[in-house]
Design a protein around this nucleic acid. Structure first.
Lengths: 204, 204
DNA sequence: CAAGTAAGGTACTGTCCGTACCCTAAATCC
DNA sequence: GGATTTAGGGTACGGACAGTACCTTACTTG
């Protein structure tokens, strides 16, 4: 044990040790991203060794994902009173998230997971349900107000805006998507779409 | 030089050598994907050594992208006579492409490129223009036929369907997206969107 | 034919994952 | 409370690969 972390008085076990490892992993992750998350460094920082890590996570990526999950928080649906306001708020939130260091880590993890479904599913930003939930909430209210057509209450439709935003990140390598693009997504695509074929259900 | 490839009679130079290296890289790429593309193996297969590779490409990813470009071909816009037919055809094509081994390689490369704009731009599947072109062509014809609103002739709007499809690949780790999903994207999202707020410009 | 340039050969550094093995502290069982 | 089982700790490797250095050798060009 490299004695960077002071030698433990009493040997930690089970949950306590797991906690310490995860904390160390989170620190490494925020400090150097997933690329800089090495098993040796995490073990050293947690004051343990790689055995303890591999006994709990089968490989580096699993540990990376577990650490990321400590950092990610669920999106709260906004309530600005208008659909356009809510949608822009959600989009701004997503843009901020993906632009943040945390978003960069998320993208690294997604890249590393490649097509591994069972790993991707653990990244909640990634889980279809978690993404769709706030959009459905917001849209539900808009439908009640007559600002959107009921057919729009469909995950595929409801999440179109955020999917387009994610696409901006993927396709351009940009660090952050400019506000004009968000507005364009909302006004050119999303609102026309959810208002349904016949224009606003009821003029707003 | 490991003598796997027969010893050259005469020493290749410049373009001839570059060609041989690229051919070897393409073979490695198709055989084992980007993950299996190692500089040592490419050099061995080309009957040369890593120096020749690094003299031409600064790192593995650059070589991987160069090799991929040999394999990718441009999308031809279909002309089925109806917008729905064209759109489904384009979507099927994209689905087939991304489901193919080649698509898997593309996804690996995109993942490896991360946010490196200048590298991403070299993956033409990735370049915004190359993606948008066939969609604009198809939509242009639809507008002329009165099947779509002229406002739809906007890259962001025109490419919505293929962006949603790509999202399916990214979010689920699926090997291939089922046809029902394509139809849903077209009927629930794309057609309502491009027909414009007032329903079909002219009944079809 | 001389000089310059690009290839070839080879060996090495450095990083890091994942594993193996053996020793020791802590919990658990009788 | 001692014996047994389980989990941690220390440490050392094996094995891949990227990327680099450096020297020798063939080809090209003036």
């Amino acid at each position: 044990m490299a004695d960077g972390a002071e030698r433990q008085q009493t040997r930690r076990r089970g949950a306590a040790l797991e906690e310490a490892i995860l904390r160390a992993a989170v620190e490494e992750l925020t400090a150097s991203g997933y690329a800089g998350l090495t098993m040796d460094k995490v073990a050293a920082r947690a004051g343990t060794n790689k055995n303890a890590l591999y006994r709990r996570w089968p490989h580096r990526l699993a540990l990376g994902i577990a650490a990321y999950r400590r950092l990610a928080t669920a999106v709260q649906p906004p309530d600005t009173g208008s659909l356009r306001g809510d949608v822009l708020a959600l989009l701004h939130g997503a843009n901020r998230h993906w632009s943040s260091p945390l978003g960069a880590i998320l993208r690294e993890l997604m890249a590393a997971a490649g097509g591994a479904t069972e790993l991707l599913a653990q990244l909640q930003d990634q889980s279809a349900d978690a993404t769709a939930a706030p959009w459905l909430t917001v849209l539900g209210r808009a439908v009640a107000r007559g600002e959107a057509a009921p057919e729009a209450l469909h995950p595929r439709v409801a999440t179109v805006a955020v999917v387009l935003l994610r696409n901006e990140f993927v396709v351009r390598g940009v660090p952050s998507v400019p506000d004009e693009v968000l507005v364009e997504i909302v006004d050119e695509v999303y609102l026309p779409l959810v208002r349904g074929r016949g224009g606003p259900v009821r003029p707003v």
